[in-house]
Structures are given as structure tokens and as C-alpha cells.
Amino acid sequence: MTDFLNLLVSGVALGAQYSLVALGFVVIYRATGVINFAQGGFCVLGAYLAYNFHNTWGVPFYLALVLTALAGAGVGALVDVTVLRRFVGQPPFVVIMLTIGLLILIEQIVPSVWGADPLPLGDPWGLRTVSPGGVDIKVSDLWTVGIVAVVLAGFFAFFRFSRMGVAMRATAVDLEAAMAQGIPAHRVYRVSWSIAGLVAALAGLTLAAGGGGVRLDIELVALTAFPVIILGGLDSPGGAVAGGLLIGVAQVMSGKYQPEHATWLGQGFPIVMPYVVMIIVLLVRPYGLFGQRKVRRI
């Protein structure tokens, strides 16, 4: 039983990391209808910025965490102002391609600045654990879950109560109608990219914390987040979190139980598992668990 609980806890922690990455995708998709392939690049950049704040400039860790989030938001805004704002109204396909171009650039800029070797983040969490009731929980995992909870609460409050949040919801429903109401689409986009950058930087930081290290392959987590965002529904923040937790737990569990009970599925099945879950869910619910059905017009 303790074994099972331990696995559940680490599945939830993994899922929380997926959720953070997925939230970034969702924010941009809601506002602009674009799947941002550079999201993984933003995560890597966030991890290295955190390294810079904490190790190079010696900022205390928790302050560095806040600064990293802000810097991430800055990166998002910068990308929007320099490149993406020229593309409002272009087909989403073109903008997706553009984000791929951005990813290629970030992939090269990061090792040019910080080198290719993995670096220690030096977070105070390290490998410390707490053990309530015999279940080992990493402190860094607790923080990750906490950050996800705060971000999700922030999302809820922002979209519900703030003027900008409501404006963003309106643009997501109908861009032209929203602009006709005097909602500044440019500002909406800039805020969306900033939020995505902020969330991605936090995701990168949590991935590098807890002994993982600041390293280039953090961006690969974005690939695992694809099934997560689809599972929850591309435009649903709550769905991103639910999907993340579901995939995280399922992946860890299948890592343990598939080799013991279902060897016929072949070696390395846990890696494929999220995609299998995704395809099954999509066939039953074509817009994910919580996604909005699109109305098809003649």
C-alpha cells in the first residue's frame, strides 16, 4: 500500500509539472488559436534565467523564483512585440510555423550563453523529503504542486474578475465581435504571451529543481505535454491541470505495473501510454474532456 501511495504521490508531482507546461499552451491557444511550439524553449529559458538570478547574481532563491516568473513574462511580451504582433489575423498555421522558428533560435541562444553542460540550480529544496505516514514526498514536488495551485487560482480570478481577463475571454469567443466592442486585441495578445512566458518559466524552474539540474533537455517535456493539453481540451485551464495529473499518474503507474502484468505490450510502453490514452479519449470526446465544442457553420 505504501508502495502504491508513493507512486501516486510521484505521479501527481510529475502531473503537476506537465500541468504547468500545458497551462502555457492553453493560455495562448485560448487567445490566438495557435499551438505554441516554442513553449518548451520558454521553459528552458526560464530554468537558465533562474540559474542566473540565483547562482550568478546571488539573489535569494525565493526572490529569484519571483524574478524568474517576471522575466519569463517579459520574454513572452518581448516575443509578442517584436515578432508576433505582425501576424494578427494571419492563418494560425503561419503563426505555428513562426513559433517553430522561435524554438530553433532559443535552442541555439541558450547554449551560446550558458554552455551545453548541465548546471546545478542550487535550490534549497534539493533532495529533501517529508514523510507523513510513511509516504516519502519530495519538498520540491510539494512546491511544484503548490505553484500549480496558485497559478490555477490566479487564472480563475484573472479570467473571472479582472477587466483584461474578461476581455480575453471575449476575444477567444469571437475576435471581430470583441474588437467591435472596443477590446484592444493587441493588448490581449500581449498579455496572453506574457502569461504563457510566466507559466513556462515557472515550469522550467520546477523541472530544474529537486536535483534535476538546469539542462537543455528540459524542453522535451513540452512534447509530453501535447497529450496533456488535448486530453483536457485545448482551451481549458482546468482541463490542462486535470489532464496533467491523469497522464502523470497513469505514466508512473504503467511504469510499475505494465512490465509486471502486461508484458505483451512491449518494451518501453510507458512512453507511448499518454498517446494511447489521448487517442482513446479523443475518439470518445473529440474536443477533450473539458474542451469547448466548436460550432460548425455552413
Binding site: N6, L7, S10, K256, P259
Partner: peptide, 17 residues
């Protein structure tokens, strides 16, 4: 004998085994 896919990033199930 435990095998894992080369791009595995979470090893909690393997460590538990």
C-alpha cells in the same frame, strides 16, 4: 532486470521495483 525507454524522465516506478 528492468528496462526503460531512452527518453524516460521520471524513474519513480523503476526505483521502486
Amino acid at each position: 532486470v528492468v528496462r526503460f525507454a531512452p527518453d524516460t524522465s521520471n524513474f519513480s516506478s523503476q526505483v521502486q521495483q
